[in-house]
Each structure stands twice: as structure tokens, then as C-alpha cells.
Computed example of a mutant assay.
Amino acid sequence: MAWYSSNRRSELPPNWAIIRQRVIRRDRGLCQGVLSEGALCGHPGTEVDHIRPGSDHSMGNLQLLCTWCHKRKTQAESRAGRADKPMPKTHIPRDQREAPPSPW
């Protein structure tokens, strides 16, 4: 996650470092990401991730992911979030646009 452009760090609880270490220990330092074939990734984990977005910092909502799995999950959540938003008013489908004025 790009912390320099995010406010997520300010939303973490004061004891985040302790919670983070508990998640790392619980997951034995291994990525809990599930690969397409259903197996766990198992690479060394570096990112403590919220399974469900939001401010639920309980152990049941946290998992350890490697950088690759975390990036993949974040991108999927971002795409899903954008899909829920309506198209900006500046985008008008080509077949619905007014014809430009004739230059002649």
C-alpha cells in the first residue's frame, strides 16, 4: 500500500504494532493468500491485511500476505470499488453524443 498517499495509518489503533506481531506469529510468518488452484501461497508474509475493508482490527479480520498477494487483493478491491461508481458526467457514449457543428 502506498502509505505516503493514504490516511490508513492514522486509522490504525495505537497498539497496531502489537496486533501486527500477533498476526505474524499466528500465521507463522507465511502468506495466507489463496492461489487460483486453492492452495495457500506460503511465501514469507510482509503485509498484515484486513480481510474485510474497514476499521475492524480484530484478529479474525486480519491475515498475513506477501507483497504480491497483497497487491493483487488491493487491485481487485480497487477495481470492484470503481465498478460500483457511476461513470463521470464527462463521459458520454459515442452513440449518444451530439453531432459536432459543421465547419462549413
Rank of each mutant, 00 (worst) to 15 (best):
Q32T: 01
P100E: 03
E98V: 06
Q21M: 07
R28H: 15
Y4N: 11
L30I: 02
L62R: 04
K73W: 10
E77Q: 12
L35N: 08
G45V: 04
C69L: 09
L12M: 13
P44H: 11
V48E: 00
C31V: 06
P88Y: 07
H50F: 06
P101E: 08
C31F: 13
G54T: 02
P14D: 14
I51K: 09
P93T: 01
A76M: 10
Y4P: 03
N61I: 03
E37T: 04
E37Q: 10
H91A: 10
E37W: 12
G54F: 04
T67N: 11
L64D: 02
W3G: 11
L12Q: 15
R82W: 09
C66Y: 09
M1F: 14
S6N: 09
S6F: 06
P103K: 03
E98W: 05
L40G: 04
E37M: 08
D84L: 14
G60V: 02
E98R: 11
G29C: 05
P101H: 07
G42V: 04
Q75E: 14
R52F: 10
W104Y: 12
W68M: 08
H43A: 15
S6I: 00
L64C: 05
A99K: 09
S58Y: 08
A99P: 04
T67M: 10
E77F: 08
K71E: 14
Q21L: 07
K89T: 07
I18P: 00
G33E: 03
K71L: 14
E11M: 08
P53D: 14
R8G: 05
V23G: 00
R72H: 13
W16S: 06
S36P: 12
R26V: 02
R9Q: 15
P86Q: 02
Q21E: 15
Q96R: 11
E98T: 06
C69V: 06
N15D: 15
S102W: 04
I19R: 03
R20V: 01
G60H: 07
R79G: 10
P86S: 06
R52S: 11
M59T: 02
T74Y: 10
S36L: 14
D49I: 09
G45I: 04
Q75V: 11
A76Y: 10
P88G: 08
V34N: 04
T74P: 05
G33H: 06
G33I: 07
T90S: 15
S78D: 13
Q96I: 00
S58D: 09
A99N: 08
H43V: 09
G29Y: 05
R22Q: 15
D56A: 08
E47T: 15
A83G: 05
A39P: 01
I18H: 11
R25T: 13
G42D: 02
A83D: 12
P14M: 03
W104R: 08
S78L: 12
H57C: 00
P93A: 04
V34Y: 06
I19G: 00
D84G: 07
I18M: 08
H43E: 15
A83C: 03
N7E: 11
W16V: 02
K71M: 13
D27W: 11
I51A: 09
Q63R: 15
I19N: 00
V23S: 01
W68H: 12
E37R: 12
R26L: 05
T46R: 10
L12C: 12
R97M: 09
